[in-house]
């Protein structure tokens, strides 16, 4: 089982297939077959003891929290009801039908940053740092930090060095999951300003089986660097399927009707400071693009 997993290509490492990408030396120890279960919870660092608690012991009851929750959830419920009267997704029907593009995230003030989470390899014991803040005139999102690809010295982890920003899963009232429906679009449109480093865009869609919950669709985002903004259009057909960072043999097109999150990952093994400024993230319909899927879907490696 483990062998089959490790023979898959790591998707971030595919960047190195771009010729002459100089990569840093990871320290490679003898391979230890990972014994992680198929369905797993949070990442547990090697050597960290298991949390010895029953699930009900983790529940914290608090009156104030309850009140806040009531307020939040009932407001959400109310908007859900009223939005129906306006039209689908809270927009008038005519607008919904004629929609050619949609701005999904733009950054206008500190509350827009609350829809995002950042994480780095610190949680596996690495030393990268990543921070998120608003840009100079509070109109953009500025992701910055340092990348450090020294692997943690725990004897098992062989690679390290990533920084990630990921949007939060949208939730309706009473913490029900809702999803983005982008099925009327075919292209992702971003306006970014980077510093020349390659990034990776990750899109997580809703899956049916629980073992697929780590399935993520990826593509690369190349920044030019410099003081100018850069408009990037990436067709959704280019996204390829990975599972826990390993690119899969049987590829499927990304189904756009239930999208959960979008994320940006940096892991190009160049140690040092990085920055990425995002103006907005949107989706649009590109009529010139007719490709359904960029990769072969027939059965390979029989």
């Amino acid at each position: 089982m483990s062998l089959q997993k490790i023979t898959r290509l790591s998707s971030l490492r595919l960047l190195s297939s771009i010729p002459h990408q100089q990569l840093l030396l990871p320290s490679i120890g003898p391979l230890t077959a990972s014994s992680r279960a198929v369905i797993q919870g949070e990442y547990r660092r090697p050597g960290q003891p298991k949390e010895d608690k029953f699930p009900w012991q983790k529940i914290k009851l608090d009156f104030r929290k309850g009140l806040e929750g009531m307020k939040k959830h009932f407001t959400l419920l109310k908007t859900e009801f009223t939005d129906r009267w306006v039209g689908p997704e809270g927009k008038p029907l005519i607008e919904h039908m004629l929609e050619q593009n949609r701005v999904l995230w733009e950054f206008r003030g500190p509350e827009s940053l609350e829809q995002w989470t950042v994480s780095s390899d610190r949680e596996i014991g690495g030393q990268s740092e990543v921070y998120l803040k608003l840009g100079k005139n509070n109109r953009t999102c500025f992701l910055y930090g340092t990348l450090n690809s020294t692997p943690p010295r725990d004897g098992e982890t062989r690679y390290s060095g990533y920084c990630t920003m990921r949007s939060k899963q949208p939730l309706a009232s009473f913490d029900r999951k809702i999803h983005y429906d982008w099925s009327s679009f075919n292209t992702l449109h971003l306006r970014v300003r980077g510093d020349g480093r390659p990034w990776m865009i990750n899109i997580a869609a809703e899956t049916f089986f629980s073992h697929q919950k780590d399935d993520i669709y990826n593509y690369f985002l190349f920044t030019r660097g410099g003081p100018y903004w850069q408009d990037i259009k990436i067709p959704f057909s280019k996204f390829f399927l990975t599972h826990r960072g390993r690119i899969q043999d049987d590829q499927h097109p990304l189904w756009l009707d239930k999208i959960n999150t979008i994320g940006f990952t940096l892991g190009d093994k160049a140690d040092g400071p990085f920055q990425l400024e995002i103006d907005f993230i949107g989706v649009c319909k590109d009529y010139a693009h007719t490709e359904e899927f960029a990769y072969e879907t027939y059965k390979r490696n029989p």
């Binding site: 290509l9 595919l14 297939s17 390659p198 690369f220 030019r224 690119i247 043999d249 490696n301």
Partner: peptide
């Protein structure tokens, strides 16, 4: 593993627009 490398590497060899 060899086959996978040979399948994916050439696909992404020249995608960098810069």
């Amino acid at each position: 593993k060899y086959q996978r490398i040979m399948y994916w590497f050439p696909k992404f060899k020249h995608i960098n627009p810069f």
